[in-house]
Amino acid sequence: MRTKLFVTEALRSIQSNLSTAIAATLTVVIGMFLLGLFIALGTWVLSYTNDVKRQLIVNVYFCTETSCGVGKNEANQRQMEAVRQQLVAMPEVKDVKFISREEALEIMRERSPALVENIVSNPLPASYQVIPHRGEDVSAIAAQLEPPPVGVEKVNYGEKEAGRVLQVAKVVGAIFVVGSAILIVASVLLIANTIRLSIFARRREVEVMKLVGATNWFVRGPFMLEGLMTGLVGSLVAVVLLLIAKEVALPAVIQRTDLTNDEVRALAFPLIALIMIGTSLLVGAIGSGITLRRFLKI
């Protein structure tokens, strides 16, 4: 009964303040579109840097007959097993993959056939590929193998590249966190302010309502409902715009790049849409509720 009254009151208020309602809705559209875009872009970038970080591994090369110098032999099974035990015991290590000398040669043959065409014996060492839980841990893992255990020729994790990759990832992550925080705050303030202004323009109306004996909730109900409707309509339009951007614009951009890695993806679209709608509903209702508080003190 009361809900029905609130709905008709809210609709009436939108109808009679149509230009303000449209302005508020457009603000929501813009704010939420930017928010959605930033979340999609940001999560995609984060996923990309994670993917790059995943490629950071530690290589542990074992001695061959010749590589470790005079008087040292090729690493034997026992030595390799000992190193494996040591690696697996490290909490940072996710997986240890053994690459035999033959496999190494096979890989080399695939990558650069010209190099292996004329060799008589296999110069490549056996190795472990150590995959860390987190890309940042490669240097820690390498440090624990210092000095190299018996039978290990050298430990390598591409120090320079790894450092650069990690630094870029860190910066990108920070930019995303700060940027999205700013954007969320800005769009919330923008929407709340628009609602504030539209209520401020009608504060005399609120005063009259209170003077004829309306309770605070009777005044607040329709206003908050109006805020909810504005938020809902605005965010739905923003979601549709973002969907169009995703379906039409994104493929065109992707075609020009080589970003076709399946591992790298943004946050799922329905989730982004949900965040957008949720945020705007919350801001719409709470924003108008808080703004009204001041005018209800009559």
């Binding site: 209170k210 003077l211 004829v212 004996g213 309770t215 009777f218």
Partner: peptide
């Protein structure tokens, strides 16, 4: 909370 009642 009773002020609206008064005003009615």
């Amino acid at each position: 909370s009773k002020v609206p009642m008064l005003r009615r």
